[in-house]
Simulated scan of single mutants.
Amino acid sequence: MLPNNHKISIAIVDDHPIVLQGFRSLLENNPLYEIAGCFTTGNEFMNFLQENSVDIVLLDITLPDGNGVHFCKEVSERYPKTIVVALSNLSERSIISQMFRNGAKGYLLKNTSAKELLDALNTVLDGKTAMSLEVKEIMQQPDLNTLQPVPELTKREKQILQLLADGRKSAAIAEELFISPLTVKTHRSTLLAKFQVNNIVSLINRAKETGLI
């Protein structure tokens, strides 16, 4: 716990203005906290940290300039005094687990209540792990991924999977592999189906868990 006379600085990283404004308004009205800044990209926040200290960052996972899972690891390694709390719509067990492995101290879904958010902030400041109720329920369920077979991928699917993991966009992948953007889109859809996930972040995390990248 920080000293009683210390006003807790919080940064919010999310590319949705409504989300930023909503959580900013909630925290600004609490005398215990001050908003260090609101950021729409991970790199913008990392640049801010070079010259400013932040006690807690509420970090989204799907960002326009990268994966919040990676930014979480970077913050934890370079700025260990900054507590990372994930704030996301993504509820896949693999992503939650990866965030905690990368140093996050909390994981909340964006539908969290004001009370749940404030309770979570108190929890992480006490050095404990915080999860919203839905996240706790997800993590208490059996890990079905261990029962799922590793998908069989074609050579082209493996190429596209690796390029997606490297952060490449569909247009860049199409140009590099000399195929059409529509073909890349079709392969992306096939990969999502084979890994039984519904977004690229989950796809990459699932592929890492199975050792395919």
Results as ranks from 00 to 15, higher is better:
residue 49 L to Y: 03
residue 61 I to G: 04
residue 9 S to C: 00
residue 152 E to G: 00
residue 169 K to S: 12
residue 31 P to Q: 08
residue 171 A to R: 15
residue 97 S to M: 15
residue 9 S to R: 01
residue 25 S to K: 11
residue 153 L to G: 03
residue 47 N to E: 13
residue 206 R to G: 02
residue 20 L to I: 11
residue 25 S to A: 14
residue 85 V to K: 07
residue 18 I to E: 14
residue 173 I to W: 01
residue 164 L to G: 00
residue 116 E to K: 07
residue 12 I to N: 00
residue 190 T to A: 11
residue 57 V to H: 06
residue 71 F to H: 03
residue 192 L to S: 05
residue 163 L to F: 03
residue 85 V to N: 04
residue 96 I to P: 08
residue 87 L to N: 03
residue 100 F to G: 05
residue 211 G to P: 04
residue 163 L to M: 12
residue 189 S to Q: 12
residue 211 G to I: 02
residue 28 E to I: 10
residue 50 Q to E: 11
residue 127 G to E: 13
residue 95 I to P: 08
residue 51 E to S: 08
residue 72 C to W: 12
residue 140 Q to N: 13
residue 74 E to R: 00
residue 110 K to I: 04
residue 48 F to R: 01
residue 166 D to H: 12
residue 183 T to W: 12
residue 35 I to M: 15
residue 138 I to G: 07
residue 202 S to E: 07
residue 45 F to V: 02
residue 48 F to K: 03
residue 158 K to M: 14
residue 114 A to L: 02
residue 102 N to K: 12
residue 193 A to G: 04
residue 104 A to S: 04
residue 169 K to C: 10
residue 142 P to V: 06
residue 6 H to W: 13
residue 103 G to Y: 15
residue 57 V to L: 00
residue 45 F to Y: 06
residue 206 R to F: 11
residue 61 I to C: 04
residue 75 V to C: 06
residue 57 V to Y: 08
residue 124 V to A: 14
residue 43 N to R: 14
residue 31 P to S: 02
residue 211 G to T: 06
residue 137 E to Q: 13
residue 183 T to A: 15
residue 105 K to F: 13
residue 167 G to E: 07
residue 203 L to A: 10
residue 15 D to E: 06
residue 118 L to H: 06
residue 166 D to G: 04
residue 132 S to L: 10
residue 162 Q to W: 13
residue 186 T to C: 09
residue 111 N to M: 09
residue 132 S to V: 10
residue 75 V to P: 02
residue 138 I to V: 15
residue 107 Y to H: 11
residue 154 T to S: 15
residue 105 K to A: 15
residue 136 K to M: 13
residue 127 G to V: 11
residue 95 I to E: 01
residue 185 K to L: 00
residue 157 E to C: 03
residue 65 D to R: 01
residue 169 K to L: 15
residue 29 N to A: 13
residue 91 S to Q: 09
residue 194 K to N: 09
residue 33 Y to P: 05
residue 19 V to Y: 09
residue 32 L to S: 15
residue 161 L to G: 10
residue 95 I to K: 02
residue 32 L to E: 14
residue 79 Y to G: 05
residue 87 L to W: 03
residue 188 R to Q: 14
residue 38 C to Y: 09
residue 97 S to L: 14
residue 96 I to T: 07
residue 69 V to Y: 03
residue 167 G to M: 06
residue 79 Y to R: 06
residue 55 D to F: 04
residue 58 L to I: 10
residue 53 S to G: 03
residue 83 I to D: 12
